[in-house]
Protein backbone atom coordinates (compact mmCIF):
# COMPACT_ATOMS: atom_id res chain seq x y z
CA UNK A 1 0.00 0.00 0.00
CA UNK A 2 2.80 2.41 0.80
CA UNK A 3 4.50 1.80 -2.53
CA UNK A 4 1.37 2.89 -4.34
CA UNK A 5 1.97 5.89 -6.53
CA UNK A 6 1.36 9.18 -4.72
CA UNK A 7 -1.59 10.21 -6.79
CA UNK A 8 -3.46 6.97 -6.23
CA UNK A 9 -2.60 7.07 -2.56
CA UNK A 10 -4.02 10.57 -2.26
CA UNK A 11 -7.22 9.50 -3.93
CA UNK A 12 -7.41 6.46 -1.68
CA UNK A 13 -7.00 8.50 1.50
CA UNK A 14 -9.48 11.08 0.34
CA UNK A 15 -12.00 8.34 -0.30
CA UNK A 16 -11.32 6.67 3.04
CA UNK A 17 -11.84 9.95 4.90
CA UNK A 18 -15.01 10.76 3.05
CA UNK A 19 -16.42 7.26 3.48
CA UNK A 20 -15.50 7.30 7.19
CA UNK A 21 -17.07 10.69 7.75
CA UNK A 22 -20.14 9.90 5.73
CA UNK A 23 -20.56 6.50 7.37
CA UNK A 24 -20.33 7.94 10.85
CA UNK A 25 -22.67 10.78 10.02
CA UNK A 26 -25.20 8.53 8.31
CA UNK A 27 -25.28 6.10 11.23
CA UNK A 28 -25.73 8.92 13.74
CA UNK A 29 -28.18 10.77 11.57
CA UNK A 30 -30.43 7.80 10.90
CA UNK A 31 -30.58 6.85 14.55
CA UNK A 32 -31.29 10.39 15.71
CA UNK A 33 -33.65 10.97 12.82
CA UNK A 34 -35.97 8.11 13.67
CA UNK A 35 -36.21 9.28 17.24
CA UNK A 36 -36.79 12.91 16.49
CA UNK A 37 -39.10 13.16 13.53
CA UNK A 38 -42.20 15.03 14.61
CA UNK A 39 -45.15 14.43 12.31
CA UNK A 40 -47.97 16.92 12.11
CA UNK A 41 -51.60 15.93 12.67
CA UNK A 42 -54.64 18.17 12.44
CA UNK A 43 -57.55 17.88 14.90
CA UNK A 44 -59.52 16.10 12.15
CA UNK A 45 -56.84 13.44 11.73
CA UNK A 46 -56.69 12.95 15.49
CA UNK A 47 -60.46 12.43 15.70
CA UNK A 48 -60.20 9.93 12.84
CA UNK A 49 -57.67 7.99 14.88
CA UNK A 50 -54.78 8.61 12.48
CA UNK A 51 -52.47 10.06 15.12
CA UNK A 52 -50.10 7.75 17.01
CA UNK A 53 -50.45 7.28 20.78
CA UNK A 54 -46.97 5.89 21.34
CA UNK A 55 -44.86 8.76 20.11
CA UNK A 56 -44.68 12.53 20.16
CA UNK A 57 -46.09 14.58 17.32
CA UNK A 58 -47.18 18.09 16.43
CA UNK A 59 -50.67 19.49 16.46
CA UNK A 60 -51.96 22.80 15.18
CA UNK A 61 -55.16 24.79 14.99
CA UNK A 62 -56.95 27.83 16.27
CA UNK A 63 -57.38 28.33 20.00
CA UNK A 64 -61.14 28.13 20.68
CA UNK A 65 -62.60 31.31 22.18
CA UNK A 66 -63.39 30.91 25.86
CA UNK A 67 -61.71 27.51 26.16
CA UNK A 68 -58.59 28.62 28.04
CA UNK A 69 -58.74 27.40 31.65
CA UNK A 70 -56.00 27.94 34.18
CA UNK A 71 -55.31 26.13 37.40
CA UNK A 72 -55.47 28.50 40.39
CA UNK A 73 -52.33 27.21 42.13
CA UNK A 74 -49.91 26.21 39.39
CA UNK A 75 -49.07 26.98 35.77
CA UNK A 76 -51.23 24.16 34.41
CA UNK A 77 -53.43 25.41 31.60
CA UNK A 78 -55.83 23.70 29.25
CA UNK A 79 -57.40 24.93 26.02
CA UNK A 80 -59.12 23.57 22.93
CA UNK A 81 -57.61 23.63 19.46
CA UNK A 82 -59.90 23.55 16.46
CA UNK A 83 -59.74 23.21 12.70
CA UNK A 84 -63.33 24.58 12.83
CA UNK A 85 -64.84 21.06 12.44
CA UNK A 86 -63.21 19.14 15.29
CA UNK A 87 -61.74 20.15 18.63
CA UNK A 88 -58.89 18.62 20.59
CA UNK A 89 -58.20 19.51 24.21
CA UNK A 90 -54.60 20.41 24.99
CA UNK A 91 -53.02 20.34 28.46
CA UNK A 92 -49.84 22.23 29.15
CA UNK A 93 -47.79 22.85 32.28
CA UNK A 94 -45.69 25.88 31.62
CA UNK A 95 -45.67 29.44 30.42
CA UNK A 96 -47.50 30.17 27.20
CA UNK A 97 -45.71 32.26 24.57
CA UNK A 98 -46.36 36.00 24.37
CA UNK A 99 -48.44 35.74 21.23
CA UNK A 100 -50.74 33.03 22.56
CA UNK A 101 -54.33 34.21 22.64
CA UNK A 102 -57.82 32.98 21.89
CA UNK A 103 -58.53 32.79 18.17
CA UNK A 104 -54.80 32.64 17.38
CA UNK A 105 -53.33 29.87 15.22
CA UNK A 106 -50.72 27.93 17.20
CA UNK A 107 -48.62 24.78 16.96
CA UNK A 108 -47.83 22.49 19.92
CA UNK A 109 -45.50 19.51 20.40
CA UNK A 110 -46.46 16.62 22.67
CA UNK A 111 -48.25 13.29 23.01
CA UNK A 112 -51.81 12.06 22.95
CA UNK A 113 -52.95 10.26 26.13
CA UNK A 114 -55.54 7.48 26.43
CA UNK A 115 -58.38 9.94 27.03
CA UNK A 116 -57.70 11.74 23.77
CA UNK A 117 -56.16 14.74 25.52
CA UNK A 118 -53.01 16.20 24.01
CA UNK A 119 -50.26 16.67 26.61
CA UNK A 120 -48.12 19.47 25.20
CA UNK A 121 -44.45 19.76 26.08
CA UNK A 122 -43.97 22.91 24.02
CA UNK A 123 -46.28 25.56 22.63
CA UNK A 124 -44.68 27.48 19.79
CA UNK A 125 -44.56 31.25 19.56
CA UNK A 126 -44.32 33.40 16.49
CA UNK A 127 -42.51 36.65 15.89
CA UNK A 128 -45.38 38.23 14.06
CA UNK A 129 -48.99 38.61 15.06
CA UNK A 130 -50.20 38.21 11.48
CA UNK A 131 -48.31 35.02 10.93
CA UNK A 132 -50.29 31.82 10.40
CA UNK A 133 -48.25 28.62 10.70
CA UNK A 134 -48.44 26.89 7.27
CA UNK A 135 -49.58 23.62 8.92
CA UNK A 136 -52.46 25.37 10.62
CA UNK A 137 -53.52 27.12 7.43
CA UNK A 138 -53.50 23.71 5.68
CA UNK A 139 -55.45 22.02 8.50
CA UNK A 140 -58.10 24.74 8.29
CA UNK A 141 -58.26 24.42 4.53
CA UNK A 142 -58.66 20.61 4.83
CA UNK A 143 -61.54 21.12 7.22
CA UNK A 144 -63.10 23.42 4.65
CA UNK A 145 -62.82 26.48 6.82
CA UNK A 146 -62.31 30.02 5.70
CA UNK A 147 -58.98 31.33 6.88
CA UNK A 148 -59.74 34.49 8.83
CA UNK A 149 -59.48 37.47 6.52
CA UNK A 150 -56.82 39.29 8.49
CA UNK A 151 -54.51 36.34 7.96
CA UNK A 152 -55.16 36.37 4.24
CA UNK A 153 -54.34 40.04 4.23
CA UNK A 154 -51.07 39.36 5.95
CA UNK A 155 -50.05 36.85 3.31
CA UNK A 156 -50.21 39.54 0.64
Amino acid sequence: MFVMNPKRRKVLFTIIFIVMGMGLATALALKAFQENLLYFYSPMQIKNGEAPTNRAFRIGGLVVDGSVQRDQQSLVVSFDLTDTLYNVTVNYDGILPDLFSEGQGIVANGRLDEDGIFKATQVLAKHDENYMPPEVAQALADAGAQIPTDHLKAQK
Binding site: A29, A32, F33, E35, N36, L37, L38, Y39, F40, A56, R58, N109, E135, Q138
Partner: peptide
Protein backbone atom coordinates in the same frame (compact mmCIF):
# COMPACT_ATOMS: atom_id res chain seq x y z
CA UNK B 1 -45.70 12.43 2.29
CA UNK B 2 -47.16 14.44 5.16
CA UNK B 3 -45.95 17.24 7.34
CA UNK B 4 -43.22 16.80 9.85
CA UNK B 5 -40.41 18.61 11.54
CA UNK B 6 -37.07 17.51 12.88
CA UNK B 7 -36.69 17.99 16.59
CA UNK B 8 -33.82 19.73 18.35
CA UNK B 9 -32.40 16.49 19.85
CA UNK B 10 -31.54 15.25 16.35
Amino acid sequence: QGKLSVGEPY
